[in-house]
Computed example of a mutant assay.
Amino acid sequence: MQNPTAQPQDEDQSKRAVDVEAGESEDAIRASRSSWWLRSWKDTINERANKKREQRSRKKEENEMIKAIVAILKKPYSVEVSDFPSGYPLQAALQSSTHDFAIYRNFSYLHSRVVLELQDQLRELEGRLHMLDKLHSESEDPEQRERVTSRVKDMEAAQMSRPVSNVVDDTATDVSVHRAERSQESDLVEQLDQKPMLSERAALLEKIQQKLVRYDEVLVHARRLAEFQRPTDDEWLNLRKWYFNRQTLSSDDEDGFIRMKHDLITLKPRTESGKIDDWIRRLLVILGKGKITVSIS
């Protein structure tokens, strides 16, 4: 005979088994979901890390490329001495290679000669202008005296004193000659109308202006050259040593400028530290301690 209580117990066990299986399924689902989220999070982290590594790598490559370009741009252009033939090419290559060798003639004497020449030429023109002004101002003719007080009157008087061309004979038998002369006369009148005749005073002033502008230019350039620095003893001696070891120029006359220390200038700019260096050198020479080279940065 079957026990009536056995069936409920079996049912309870079945229910518990189903509940256990359901719980295990839910745990598996949660574990699967957790595993998926973990993998997704790891993939995201790895992807971001890879992007950062790529960005750092690209930036590093760009920086290296920029450094290489800057190094190329900063690299000085250098050539071998053998690239220049001996003579003026080699001499010019040396003196243009550094400011220390940029030493050239000042030609102070020639500047003075040119200035004196232009000065005396202007003096002559000045005297001629003064004599012309005096001649017109002391004239008994009122029209001549007006030429000093009015530029327009001076030009009008010059036009009035223009020589008159010969009158052409209308009765000339040769018509072709007659027409040719009239054509020449017409061309002359047209040229005179285009460019009025200058008075003697105006022509003299125009010449004075040209000479004066040239004189001023020479004076200004001479003044600028006077501001250039003289080469130091070391710079001058270094240039002489290099030259006399190389003997680039074959003519004694042409290389004479190297020995003319009194007439040499340098294109090297003088900084304040350079002036202090020179002062220290002179002081040490006075104190009897010799010469040294000082560099102040």
Rank of each mutant, 00 (worst) to 15 (best):
M1F: 10
A6R: 09
Q9G: 07
E11Y: 13
D12C: 12
S14W: 13
R16E: 08
V18Y: 14
E21G: 06
A22N: 09
G23P: 02
E26R: 09
R33Y: 06
R33A: 03
S34H: 11
S34P: 07
S34V: 09
S35D: 09
W36D: 13
W37T: 07
L38F: 13
R39N: 13
R39G: 07
T44Q: 15
I45G: 11
A49Q: 12
N50T: 12
K51Q: 14
E54C: 07
R56K: 14
R58W: 11
K59N: 14
E61S: 06
E61L: 08
E62I: 05
N63Q: 13
M65G: 06
I69V: 12
I69T: 10
V70C: 05
Y77M: 10
S78T: 15
S78M: 15
V79E: 15
E80S: 15
E80K: 15
V81E: 14
F84V: 04
P85M: 10
P85E: 09
P89V: 03
A92Y: 04
L94M: 01
D100F: 07
A102E: 01
I103T: 00
I103E: 00
Y104F: 15
R105H: 09
Y109T: 07
S112K: 15
V115W: 08
V115C: 12
L116R: 13
D120N: 12
R123W: 07
E124F: 05
L129K: 04
L129T: 00
D133Q: 10
L135T: 10
H136E: 08
S139N: 02
R145F: 01
R145Y: 01
R147Y: 00
K153I: 06
P163V: 00
S165M: 13
V167E: 09
V168K: 02
D170G: 09
A172R: 07
S176L: 12
H178Y: 11
E185Q: 11
D187G: 02
L192K: 06
M197S: 15
L198Q: 04
E200L: 10
R201D: 00
L204A: 05
R214S: 00
D216T: 06
E217Y: 08
V218C: 00
R223G: 06
F228T: 05
F228L: 15
K241N: 13
Y243C: 01
D252V: 05
E254W: 03
E254M: 07
D255K: 09
G256T: 01
I258D: 00
R259G: 05
R259F: 05
L267P: 02
T271H: 04
G274I: 04
K275D: 00
K275W: 05
K275G: 06
D277P: 04
D278T: 02
D278H: 03
W279L: 14
R281T: 04
R282G: 03
V285P: 01
V285Y: 05
I286W: 11
I286E: 15
L287H: 07
G288C: 01
G290R: 02
